[in-house]
Design a binder for these strands. Structure first.
Lengths: 203, 203
DNA sequence: ACCTGAACACCGTTCAAGT
DNA sequence: ACCTGAACACCGTTCAAGT
């Protein structure tokens, strides 16, 4: 995991891992079936960092139903932020115990919020997609604002500025945007608002 | 692209591509800078298949504002379905002209729908995430229903069925679900409903 | 039970040599 | 302008040999 955090998942080869640990390559295979096994392992370490919905501070009022959901989703987002390589691994790797616990917790919080089974089913997908998709987009644009603006303007220049007015406006919005966290939460609340429409009002 | 469609992106090595074309490996480098260039190229071919919002049939009534958005988003989803390998490539590859045109079209349709700039900005992200995230999830579960149910139940059995009641229910919902297309559209409309809340009513 | 080295079948890419 | 072959620096993994 430290290796992947340093140089991305490309830096994590069996040979480099072995060297890092002070052994020869083939010694690893006494403790691990293959490379996929290693990747599944570190992906589950990321899942272990995600806090469950129950860890949310208690809330009152209209937004109470979504406190737990928001907490675990934001925690998942933060974990992906700390370990960007985990996003690409997520779908391609078999789920470990911590990930299963996270999935269970998110589903539990959706039902606890009063959503009917079908809405919870789809809501789970919507939230998972938001977590993964947003992390994917963040990787692309990069966290460094200077990079974004330079790369964007440079690239757009190649395609005659006139042809993509909306795209240029969008890039400007990216540059002018305050901390990225806002973007994630804004869309999260769009999704939660959409789900709220499908939530039967409690007595 | 044909090579990637056949065996996934792993099947697409420079050496295999050259053999497929009847040349030696190094001949490719006369026409292409490197492998990333090839990947960017085929990713943009996928983008070229996405229909613009203007291709939507005209609609009347309450849902008229979202017709163009829905059309291009569903078309993008279909393209990802036809070329699953494109999902992983999307964020890691530089955007080509067709992709820029698609982005521009989606942004244009959001503004045309009457969404204010800030809502269009976030709505664009929400929809892109939905397209990418959903395709990612579909890859994981696989399109074959038999595979889903078998893999799911087999895996859950390893972790004592009692510990994950909601996860088990979710798996059952996956198995009982009708065609997958429904799931995508359901969540899409959740997002669009959320955006609708932020849309000033037209005169 | 764990470690090791040689070997195999692959990669992407550089570089000098051909036509 | 385009093609080619040898070579380099890498991969993950098998297998036989060590302790």
């Amino acid at each position: 995991m430290a290796l992947a955090d340093r140089g991305g998942v490309d830096e994590l080869s069996m040979r480099k891992l072995a060297r890092d640990l002070g052994y020869e390559v083939m010694s690893l295979y006494n403790h691990v079936a293959n490379k996929d096994d290693v990747l599944a392992g570190i992906a589950d370490l990321v899942a272990a960092e995600i806090e469950p919905p129950e860890a949310a501070p208690a809330r009152r009022g209209k937004a109470a139903w979504r406190a737990g959901i928001r907490h675990t989703v934001l925690s998942a987002h933060a974990a992906m932020d700390r370990h960007p390589w985990a996003v690409a691994l997520w779908p391609s790797v078999t789920s470990g115990p911590h990930r299963l616990r996270f999935m269970e917790g998110l589903l539990r919080s959706l039902r606890a919020a009063g959503l009917p089974p079908k809405v919870a089913y789809h809501g789970y997908h919507a939230l998972m997609m938001h977590i993964l998709g947003f992390a994917l987009l963040e990787q692309r644009t990069g966290l460094n604002d200077d990079n974004v603006v330079e790369a964007a303007s440079q690239f757009l220049a190649r395609f005659e500025g006139e042809e993509f007015p909306h795209l240029i406006e969008h890039m400007h919005q990216h540059v002018d945007a305050s901390p990225h966290e806002d973007d994630f939460e804004f869309v999260l609340d769009v999704i939660l608002d959409g789900l709220d429409r499908l939530r039967p009002q409690p007595a």
